[in-house]
């Protein structure tokens, strides 16, 4: 199943997917997520981390300080060598969803706001991961962190998470650095961080924060949400544009300003993409008229690629007794 969905996600065929506008008509966030996740079976991710488990991975010589519980007594008896038995850790994935709830996310030209799309995406991912038995946490933010739920795999936790996502947005502006720094302070154990935002904020300090998180061993995945008309400035008449975050107004004739705007917008999106690329972070640009399944496919694809690369690295560098 995972393989087939990944191959589908690579293509551009949208037939058979749920239209986001139709999806958003469903009032309940939980139901929306369940609808999208329907069809995916819960998979167990192989953890790259070692722990006490039934599945053996390798032996290694005992060195002082190792826990004597893991000493393979049979090997000691047989060969008179002290070896430590290593097992593959079967703990599930710990994923944190970081969802932008700033005012700029309230914009939506085609009946869906970026905020709706973003929360549905986060809920879908949470539902999906929960179904796989993974622990999911949540952090919503605007100019500061609003909600934080630590990653848990309990079924009641998912309901709490949906409730937190459904809360009305309170903030105004966007600060992308604050939640990342907060996350760095809160989440000690390595895991997956999924950042859902429109990235309409200065990018100066974003890179350093992402670098710190990446070097701490966190796997980061970015969903960059874009509204179609926001990207193209597809307006005809001159308008008085009002900034959703600062309430500043600007008289703009789109006919005149369109070319320059598109260039600047594309440059900004490209800057986000490059920034992620430099840090080895998965970056997915999602327009709000695109089906949410694509986001799931992208998620799974990135996860699988990562898994393969870890396995590959281990296969090349691991030692067998």
């Amino acid at each position: 199943m995972t393989g087939t969905t990944t191959s589908s996600a690579a293509g551009t065929v949208r037939r058979g997917y749920i239209d986001p506008r139709a999806l958003m008509r469903i009032g309940s966030l939980e139901l929306r997520a369940r609808v999208v996740v329907e069809g995916f079976w819960n998979g167990l991710h192989r953890s790259p981390y070692h722990g006490f488990s039934a599945e053996f991975t390798e032996y290694r010589p005992y060195s002082s300080g190792d826990d004597p519980r893991y000493v393979d007594w049979r090997v000691l008896a047989r060969s008179d060598r002290v070896y430590i038995k290593k097992f593959e850790d079967e703990t599930n994935l710990r994923c944190h969803l970081l969802v932008d709830r700033s005012r700029s996310m309230d914009y939506g030209s085609a009946g869906i706001t970026k905020a709706d799309y973003g929360t549905t995406l986060a809920a879908t991912l949470a539902q999906f991961l929960h179904k796989q038995g993974d622990a999911v946490g949540l952090m919503t933010f605007d100019e500061r962190v609003r909600e934080y739920l630590p990653a848990r795999a309990r079924s009641t936790h998912l309901r709490q998470l949906f409730l937190a996502l459904d809360k009305p947005a309170e903030g105004k502006t966007t600060d992308l650095v604050a939640p990342l720094e907060h996350m760095l302070a809160l989440v000690r154990k390595r895991g997956l961080l999924v950042l859902v935002s429109d990235f309409l904020a200065p990018l100066d300090r974003l890179e350093s924060s992402l670098t710190t998180l990446a070097t701490c061993g966190h796997e980061i995945l970015v969903f960059h949400l874009v509204d179609p008309s926001e990207a193209s400035l597809s307006f005809d008449a001159p308008l008085l544009f009002e900034d959703l975050e600062t309430a500043r107004t600007l008289f703009v004739d789109p006919e005149v300003a369109r070319v320059g705007y598109r260039e600047r917008f594309a440059a900004h999106t490209e800057a986000v993409r490059r920034l992620c690329e430099r840090q080895g972070i998965g970056h997915h640009r999602l327009a709000t008229d695109e089906p949410l399944e694509l986001a799931l496919f992208a998620f799974l694809k990135t996860r699988q690629q990562r898994h393969k690369s870890v396995r590959g690295a281990r296969a090349g560098g691991g030692r067998r007794p």
């Binding site: 005012r103 700029s104 996310m105 309230d106 914009y107 970026k114 429109d198 309409l200 509204d227 926001e230 307006f235 308008l239 008085l240 544009f241 009002e242 900034d243 959703l244 975050e245 600062t246 500043r248 107004t249 600007l250």
Partner: peptide
């Protein structure tokens, strides 16, 4: 009319 826009 006024157009509320995510960012100027």
């Amino acid at each position: 009319q006024r157009m509320r826009f995510p960012s100027l």
